[in-house]
Nucleic acid binder design. Sequence first.
DNA 1: TTGTAAGCGTTATCAA
DNA 2: TTGATAACGCTTACAA
Lengths: 335, 335
Amino acid sequence: MEAITIKDIAKALNLSTSTVSRALRGSYEINNETKKLVLEYAEKMNYHPNPIALSLKENRSKAIGVIVPEIANNFFSQAINGIEAVAYDRGYHVVIFQSHESYERERSNIQHLVGRKVDGVLISLSGQTTTVEHLQEIQKRGVPLVVFDRISNDIISNKVIADNFQGAYEATEHLILSGRKRIAHITSPSLLYTTNERLEGYKAALAKYNIPFDENLVRYCGFEPEDAKQVIFEVLETQKPDAIFTASDRLALDSFAAVKAKGIQIPEQVAFIGFTNLGVAHLLDPPLSTIVQPAFAIGKTAAEMLLDTIENKQSNAAVKTIKIPTEVNLRTSSE
Amino acid sequence: MEAITIKDIAKALNLSTSTVSRALRGSYEINNETKKLVLEYAEKMNYHPNPIALSLKENRSKAIGVIVPEIANNFFSQAINGIEAVAYDRGYHVVIFQSHESYERERSNIQHLVGRKVDGVLISLSGQTTTVEHLQEIQKRGVPLVVFDRISNDIISNKVIADNFQGAYEATEHLILSGRKRIAHITSPSLLYTTNERLEGYKAALAKYNIPFDENLVRYCGFEPEDAKQVIFEVLETQKPDAIFTASDRLALDSFAAVKAKGIQIPEQVAFIGFTNLGVAHLLDPPLSTIVQPAFAIGKTAAEMLLDTIENKQSNAAVKTIKIPTEVNLRTSSE
DNA sequence: TTGTAAGCGTTATCAA
DNA sequence: TTGATAACGCTTACAA
């Protein structure tokens, strides 16, 4: 069951490989008879062009590379879902790598991908990434790049993110309108772009209702599970907030558990949350309001931008940053 | 910033491409001086062999294909995590496709992958797949195959699954030991292999404690969200179970919500559950016991089997099915 | 309308 | 110890 090649067809039909090649791609300069002959034989023998040979010839692979911190994370797996959907429709393959929040691993992944001659790269930066030379490097090589969600101001490229400002604003406003004044904000590391956007949304809502911003109510938290517990207990103890606004499902659940464990009265809680836990937020008591990251749409949009760039190769196109609205599900506790 | 090739090195150093090639791979028949010269220059110019050219030459791609029903599913994204970990360590790339539970899409994915000349395929069958000709086809082409989780008896190949029998047995036993007698089992479609394994585990536990098996307590449920609700309400109404054992996190949460909504007393509930919701099961009231599918280990094991097969090409190796134990977290409600 | 030949980057065979 | 050449599968000038 070895795969059949153009050469096999040529031999069988007593033609040259070039004639067969042209016939297969429907070139106008080929006799209709010959064309039909070739096409029928190819069909019969279940011929498929060898994509590796094509890649070598044309110096492209019809594959795109995706680098995410962790695949097993609702947000990223949803995003990959969106990416795969677009790629499949447009005849591209998706090659996946994880950086595991490591800068070194991310560099290595990039190397692999450019070595593999992917036609473009979609990346969400690792938590440790502070320099973007590796990204500039692939840009210099002419490989199109779209950065999504974990973006950086240092790299000039197309970007896609959730509208974190809007989500944070709406969520904070909801808490204020339900009577809360001391709203703790437990969030991701301060150097992430999204962290800042959320903080600004939070601040803007406070400002609108003339509540002074108190930085004692804000806590930045790394990705280690241990960090979270400490930070949460500490802010609950020392600041006595009357609501909590957390920046991830993990932080949301940890703070929820902390509230329960301490028997503290926190009737309102809001979380930036991933996809799967959506079904659970309203089952908790008090129920969690959620700000759902539009992960699928982000992946889809990023992939579309990338493939458009790859296929049009508009060198004049200006880079842009697209913000996708978050979906805010507000729930008030029935105190 | 075009990539540098062996030819460039040869020209620069006034050598032939074959000499350079040999020097780079450290062939013993090359003068040490020359070798050093070449290696240093290659290093300096940041030379990397073109994997596509290698693939064409060696008729392999150092890439494996993965087909799963849905990426954005905790179980599968965890499994892909395991797959990627192994693949990365062993220098393989992972190309991802989703079947979206569609047989046609699965066929198409397989076509793409063999067309791409992947060195092997990892697949978890779609819910609609009832025939395995497409898999036999790739086996005929000599492409190694490992089926994981959603397996089929019709295909003869290496397989990796969770030990669903053991998990279901332990969970059911736990419910029995906490005093339950009418344990409803809400599970996946009856033709899936795992569904049957779980049912057998459930039955075995009942048998051990002399509780007669009552098929009225068992409900099979498709992947449509609508199916679930109906089935759950119906079994709660008509059968008045005193415990529920569900086969997925979705079913678990839906039944939990149903119990709450109806105000029914179901103090014990157990679920086969994915990864992320783990953190939430104990926060519910009553808490859910969980049977965690060892998704990462399944992916890892499957990938290892596949790469071993690819690299050893032992044609004499008998196929085997590996069962990975589930992790059972038992929680009793404090009635 | 069809064929010949070169080339994509690499390695293997054979010759020098 | 090194070099010339063919080959992997395909496309495309250029020739016929």
